[in-house]
Amino acid sequence: MHHTTYMKAGNTDDAVARMADGGQLLAGGMTLIPTMKQRLANPETLVDLAGCGLAGIEDQGDSIRIGAMTRHADVAGSDLVRGAIPALAALAGGIGDRQVRNRGTIGGSVANNDPSACYPAAVLGLGGTVHTDRRDIAADDFFTGMFETALDEDEMITAVSFPKTGKAAYVKFPNPASRYAMVGVFVASAVDGTRVAVTGAGSDGVFRHAGMEAALDAGFSAGSLDGITVDADEMISDIHASGDYRAHLVREIAKRAVAAC
């Protein structure tokens, strides 16, 4: 790992000011530190957010607000999340391995927008809201491409909120070696209709599938997706799976998610 200067931010304003000076935010570090070890990222300054007081899960009536520094293990084990949005707790409990869940955070995962990460599927699938130091961003406006988000250069996620719904499920087809999602589909019955969000597969990162959503609004059953086609040209194609295979998996995994709702 290249040399870096480590500092702790005391609160959100402090972190944002240090980021404006060129600092790289460090949340759980489950992606950033391995990336730095491979010298694929070489930030001159690391700003640790552990002391910013951003961990915690709050019941806000119709929604649940999860602080950016809340770890996957805490979301997975939260009675509040398990009761109000069981699919979200289950998703968090399936990320990485136990040691990653003991350290990785929701804010870090969402900000990174890794195309194979699980959390972006939940944020988009549930129609959540990303709260930052300066504004609230709807999930539909947040994820703008692979590793790309609507965040400004010096903007920081402080929390993510999710509308409560018991009718939702996430099913992941993990890569047998890395356990990352080769395809993951989050299906939710939301206020504005059914939402289907797909991670791991799209060449632009997480995406909604309008065709499946319309089919499920017409009749909510796995069989409703039988005639749906997923465009293989819009899928990632790599050594792990071809675009055609991923396109096939998206529909099949979506059917399993619907059946699990």
């Binding site: 480590y6 460090l26 570090g29 530190i33 391995p34 070890k37 136990r98 040691q99 003991n102 350290r103």
Partner: peptide, 19 residues
């Protein structure tokens, strides 16, 4: 490299000593 930090298992190769 798993160790316990404040009672929880973590990968010590993926955490800074300063953290």
């Amino acid at each position: 490299c798993v160790v316990h930090v404040d009672g929880e298992s973590l990968k010590s190769c993926t955490m800074l000593a300063a953290g």
